[in-house]
Simulated assay, not measured.
Amino acid sequence: MLGATTAAWSYGDAHGAPLLLVHGFRGDHHGLEGLAEAIVAAQPDIRAIVPDLPGFGASAAIPGRTHDLDLYGEWLREFAPAALPPRFALLGHSFGSLVVANAIAGGLTPSRLVLINPISAPALEGPQAILTQLAIGYYRAADLLPERAARALLGNAAIVRGMSEVMAKTGDPELRKWIHGQHASYFSTFSDPRTLLEAFRASVSHTVIEYAEAIAMPTLLIAGDRDDITPLPKQLELDHRLPESRLRVIPGTGHLVHYEAVADATAFILEFLSTPDPAVAGGAEPVESHHQGAAE
């Protein structure tokens, strides 16, 4: 795609109804693998496809291009029709929500859209602004270092663990241990420090709300009520801005719904995908919350 190889993983029936999942910043397909596997296990006639974003995991960075949000949106608009039939559902988590929103604004037309922990609040404003500026400094410092030193800083086990501790909200010690292991294994599989810095800037410079007017298809929003990156009031705002959306809120969960509440997210997604289009209400639909089930 765009002159570079995109690696993608497929789960479930090769001829099933396609669901394309786009992962978040600094991760790769492993972040959504558990959710993809849970979806196809519960609904065997679905095919889940999870690519690694350009510059992450096994996907190469796009040569000669700045990895901003427009680039990622362009990549998705090229990848989706090449890998999927014309009618497909699309899911984005965190930074992935920005990628899919940008792609839709540029003309991508999924039949249905699922956004998990969508980025609905400006990272450079509000209570998270100071932390965001510190993170920008961290990535910028790494970009100025030689390659080996930069990778050592970006992959520093203590820093990665600190990020993981902040994001994880579960009180289950075994699940927390597993989440930390996932981040330790896959949080540093980026192609190079410059691409990582560019992608980070893209992740904190936009919100899905910017693209709300373009998102006209039935949309499911899934949010944790303890998400530190996008507070619940901003998710409510996004829900009200979309003409055909439903917001599901999972209590006790933060930005890692795809790790901490897989069972709930799977149930919500399958219910949504099986609901006839006219039954998906818009702004008049009440916000629904669901008690957290056992994570898988």
Rank of each mutant, 00 (worst) to 15 (best):
E147G: 09
T6P: 01
S10M: 01
H183I: 12
Q128K: 13
G27W: 02
S188T: 15
E244T: 10
E78K: 13
G34A: 00
G137I: 00
L242R: 05
Y139T: 09
D277Y: 14
L91M: 10
S164E: 04
P127A: 11
V160D: 03
L98T: 08
V204W: 13
E296N: 09
E147V: 14
L131K: 08
L124C: 11
A284S: 14
R87G: 03
A36K: 00
H255R: 06
G73P: 09
E213S: 05
A295H: 11
P81W: 01
E147Q: 12
Y138C: 00
N117V: 14
A103V: 03
T132S: 02
I159T: 11
A157P: 09
L113H: 11
Q292K: 10
S164Y: 05
P251V: 09
R47W: 04
R161I: 07
A82F: 04
D143N: 07
G171A: 09
P81F: 02
T170D: 02
T275D: 00
I209S: 14
V160H: 03
E125M: 11
D192Y: 12
L154K: 08
S203L: 05
D28R: 00
E237N: 10
H183P: 08
A267M: 06
L32R: 00
T219C: 03
F88G: 12
A101W: 03
D227P: 11
Y186K: 11
G3F: 15
R194A: 15
P51F: 04
P44K: 00
